[in-house]
């Protein structure tokens, strides 16, 4: 065990993992996190705490992760490269570990153009690949990026942040032929687990996974398939039109349009998808991103036969 987190234990033991997304509020209201944590506790193995997703200011990932942890649910702290340089990143990693956080997901981050401060200056001192490498070095080499040992003084003990390191990969972004190679780069950089972009286009996902398996990457990294329950055909059409790097088949839009109860159809689709991805070689779990719809996660997990959690 590298970090000793619950998620790491489940994956290492060869059990099918379930994670979900828990979005922090656009306020300082801790109750939002506590309520969502109560909802998800015991239903999933760990929750991803997003880091100012789509560049909209929200409660910090570290703060929200600590609140979730205090509620007895294991957080996966997300960190994007958009808002912090290597100094702030390493400092936040030390703080997060000291607070008890044991999982971290390293991301590039959406461009600030999409958020509520489009005139902000971005950082991107490191990219997600370099962030992965830095977190791994901090854990395994016990050094900062500059090479200094992680200790307060020459006489003080080395106390390095031991994190279970995750990354995302998007099989649906272009160019397709580079997507498995990019995953290999992330594994080389230090990723222990991968959560994929949400799957709507299963054939393309299978094609990518085949390449991943052919390259032997599934034996080096735990891959969790990303899933997103959709409430309405409108949401789906909006994403198809406006969210870059997504592949949403017309047939799915039609299916949602034809449904008498779109929310139920959205749940059904994800439950079916879980059964499908479980059959794919190299898939070690699922990651459910129910954006501002966390309350549906227990239903999905139960109907997919993934309860009780180990």
């Amino acid at each position: 065990m590298k970090a000793g987190s619950n998620l790491e234990r489940i994956l290492t033991e060869g059990k099918f993992a379930v994670t979900a997304e828990l979005g922090p509020p656009k306020s300082a209201d801790a109750e939002v996190i506590r309520k969502k944590a109560d909802l998800l506790k015991g239903k999933v193995d760990a929750v991803n705490i997003t880091d100012n997703q789509t560049a909209i200011v929200r409660m910090s990932s570290i703060g929200a992760a600590k609140l979730a942890l205090d509620k007895g649910i294991e957080p996966i702290m997300q960190m994007v490269c958009r808002d912090r340089n290597r100094i702030a990143m390493q400092s936040d990693i030390l703080g997060a570990y000291a607070l008890g956080i044991r999982n971290m997901l390293c991301l590039t981050g959406d461009h600030q153009k999409f958020g509520n401060h489009p005139t902000a200056k971005n950082v991107f001192d490191l990219d997600s690949m370099q962030l992965l490498d830095m977190v791994k070095r901090m854990r395994d080499n016990k050094t900062f990026m500059c090479g200094d040992e992680i200790r307060n003084s020459k006489k003080a003990p080395v106390v390095e942040p031991k994190l279970f390191i995750g990354a995302a990969e998007n099989p649906f972004a272009h160019p397709y032929e580079f997507r498995a190679i990019r995953l290999a780069k992330k594994v080389k950089a230090g990723a222990d687990f991968i959560q994929t972009q949400c799957i709507f286009d299963l054939p393309r996902f299978k094609e990518w996974m085949k390449e991943v398996v052919d390259m032997g990457l599934h034996e080096k990294v735990f891959i969790l398939a990303g899933l997103m329950p959709i409430k309405s055909p409108k949401t789906l059409e909006y994403m198809k039109k406006n969210v870059a790097g997504m592949s949403i088949p017309d047939a799915l839009v039609e299916r949602m349009k034809g449904a008498s109860d779109p929310k139920e159809e959205g749940v059904k689709f994800v439950v079916e998808l879980i059964q499908e991805v479980k059959q794919i070689e190299g898939i070690r779990g699922v990651h459910i991103m129910a954006v501002e719809w966390e309350e549906v996660v227990p239903t999905i997990v139960e109907r997919a036969g993934l309860l009780p959690r180990p």
């Binding site: 590039t108 991107f124 690949m129």
Partner: peptide
């Protein structure tokens, strides 16, 4: 995003997510 190990997940049909 000045990424040195791109492209990120926002690359679609040769165009940037921005």
């Amino acid at each position: 995003k000045s990424l040195l190990n791109g492209p990120c997940g926002g690359s679609t049909k040769g165009k940037c997510e921005v």
